[in-house]
Nucleic acid binder design. Structure first.
Lengths: 223, 223
DNA sequence: ACAATAGTGTCTGTGAGACAGTATCGA
DNA sequence: TCGATACTGTCTCACAGACACTATTGT
């Protein structure tokens, strides 16, 4: 960036695309919108917004999340920047992808401009099918899915997919969904014990032993 | 990115900045250039190039690496995209940072346009000093340093900092530099044994037992 | 022989994985 | 009492950490 003879370089549009994951019916879902304009009119796509000339990436992400879900303060992190030339058939757009995680209970829908509808799509079904998304968004979802599984193994990121108070069987289920395999209760508990704190609350009404609610106390280091 | 009313959004410049790490004299070094134009004339900065309107990010990175070092085919990976509004005092620039790793023996310098000189800066000394770089480049270097240490722990990325043939004491030394601590020979060898292959070559000329040269055979998974 | 560094054998502790057992609810 | 799920105790095994020992060179 030391080269300031920018005059010979044409400027381009920069957008942020949002991969919003949540858990619904014990499945990993991603929020997609149905486009109501060309290109890809009628197709599903990841929601996104253009970055304003006086707007930070962070501000654009918050704006995008709010436009689509009406939410503030949900967890997100930058994922990757996609810069292929022909991503968009009409013009050059650099897309900075952000991954957001939100528990279903907090998630609300809110169709934005030029959007027919907002829906949750089953991620595994989508990836293993030949269904497509607009632009290169399928590739982006696949990458995000991979990253999420990866970070599940060595960070606390999974906590963002459950509510503030959660039971261990509940949390374990989310881990199992993200990792794609069953875990042993006893081992799982030992693993997360130093990151959570008991509450006084228990589940009730089920025809079996109640489960205690916990809250998170701190983050693991690393990434 | 579904919102195509881009007309109301001013376009901006996109650049790639390069954090090129290497090992010199048993220290981690980063390649910086001395600027020969405003802003920050005379200051050190990370080398970078603007992304052409018909150029992928990848192509821009390769071009930038080649301009500064004359090299092709060195290892690099996308690091993070910095999008603060006032990164540059003159105009809005989105910077996509890439981290490159290269063994010193392959590294050549080559001052590009608008550049007084190219040099290797000691990373630890720099970070713990109050020395500055142009723009937000100090922050970028710090982040890259952190990421490199992190990936050293759970990937094979370190192999990119040694030549094709290397001895284990040599490789271990690089790990120690990146991790900032001494390692035990025996344990280190066990750890890397399944990623390397013996060659028939040995060091010679030293007043002690010779060391065998190895080559890498495969990458670990993960990230 | 000695200094210096390369390379190995092995003990220990920690933590993941596996599995069997006990606890507590509604019906 | 029974079915169902929550929760715990404990064995094993792999692996990282620690350290002492042996090996091979030039001087």
């Amino acid at each position: 960036m030391q080269d300031y003879d920018a005059s010979i370089y044409e400027k381009m549009s920069v957008a942020v695309d949002l991969i919003t994951f949540t858990i619904e019916d014990d499945r990993l879902k991603v929020l997609v919108i149905n486009r109501e304009e060309e290109p890809f009119d009628g197709m599903n796509a990841l929601p996104g917004v253009f970055v304003g000339i006086d707007e930070t990436l962070d501000a654009a992400v918050k704006r995008g999340i709010n436009e689509e879900t009406g939410l503030k303060d949900i967890y997100y992190e930058q994922l990757y920047t996609f810069g292929d030339v022909d991503r968009d058939p009409r013009m050059r757009i650099i897309s900075v992808a952000y991954m957001a995680l939100v528990p279903l209970e907090k998630l609300k829908f809110k169709a934005g401009k030029r959007t027919r509808s907002v829906m949750l799509m089953d991620v595994e079904d989508f990836i293993s099918s030949d269904e497509e998304l607009a632009f290169d968004h399928k590739k982006i979802v696949e990458y995000a899915r991979w990253r999420l599984a990866n970070k599940t193994m060595y960070t606390d990121i999974t906590f963002h997919l459950v509510e503030d108070k959660f039971t261990l069987p509940e949390l374990q289920k989310v881990y199992e969904i993200l990792l794609g395999k069953k875990l042993y209760k006893a081992n799982f508990r030992k693993k997360v014990m130093d990151m959570i704190e008991e509450t006084e609350f228990m589940t009730s009404g089920d025809a079996h032993r109640p489960s205690r609610y916990y809250t998170r106390i701190k983050e693991k280091p690393v990434k």
